[in-house]
Simulated assay, not measured.
Amino acid sequence: MARPEFEEVVEDFEFLEDWEDRYRMVIEMGKAMAPMPDALKVPATKVNGCASQVWLHPQIEGDTFNFQGDSDAMIVRGLIALLHRLYDGLTLDQVRAVDAKHELGRLGLNEHLSSQRSNGLHAMIERIHHLAEA
């Protein structure tokens, strides 16, 4: 059920054999992401459970889920860009149905992220699902 944008990342990861190259790709995705306005970086949008500063701001129009996100860590910004490719533009029902653990597992992230980064990624996914349910 992954979006075409996420499937492109999966294909790119399959092409890149070296994890350093994959990390660079994730970081570059984060750098390419539009910055989140500082006015949206408030306690209500901050994601708890992340080692670095992370903010997610939902933009729900009708039944369509979009979000902006940012972090003070480049790799985490890249992880937000991955989540953007996984969730942005889906209906609220589709967001709730996404098995993010499975989809991100296709990238092999589970084995290559530190426990702190994995916990932070899980916290971001929980926040996205919570926003879609609210």
Rank of each mutant, 00 (worst) to 15 (best):
H129W: 09
G62S: 11
G108D: 02
I128A: 03
A134R: 12
D72W: 09
P37F: 05
M124I: 02
H57T: 14
L131S: 10
A97Y: 03
Q94L: 05
G120K: 04
G30S: 15
M29K: 12
T45M: 11
L92W: 00
H84Y: 00
A134T: 09
A97D: 06
K101E: 08
Q68Y: 04
K31N: 12
H122L: 13
D99I: 13
Y87P: 09
H122W: 10
A81H: 07
K41Q: 11
G120L: 11
N119T: 12
L107N: 00
Y87K: 03
A97T: 01
N119E: 10
H57G: 08
L113F: 11
V42L: 14
M36D: 08
Q59K: 14
M29Y: 05
I60K: 13
V54F: 07
L92G: 05
H84F: 04
V47H: 06
W55H: 06
R85Y: 04
M29G: 11
A51S: 12
L56Y: 00
A132Q: 07
M124L: 10
L90H: 05
I128S: 01
V54A: 08
I125Q: 06
T64N: 02
I75M: 13
H130V: 08
Q116W: 10
V95C: 06
L82I: 09
D93K: 14
H129N: 12
V54L: 05
L131Q: 14
L121H: 04
E133C: 11
S114E: 11
L92H: 00
L40D: 14
K31C: 05
E28N: 15
Q59A: 13
D88S: 02
F65K: 06
L90R: 03
A97V: 12
K31E: 13
A81Y: 02
K31M: 09
G89M: 02
L92V: 03
D88L: 04
D88Q: 03
H102N: 00
V98E: 07
L90E: 02
L107E: 03
V42R: 15
A73I: 10
M29P: 09
Q68F: 01
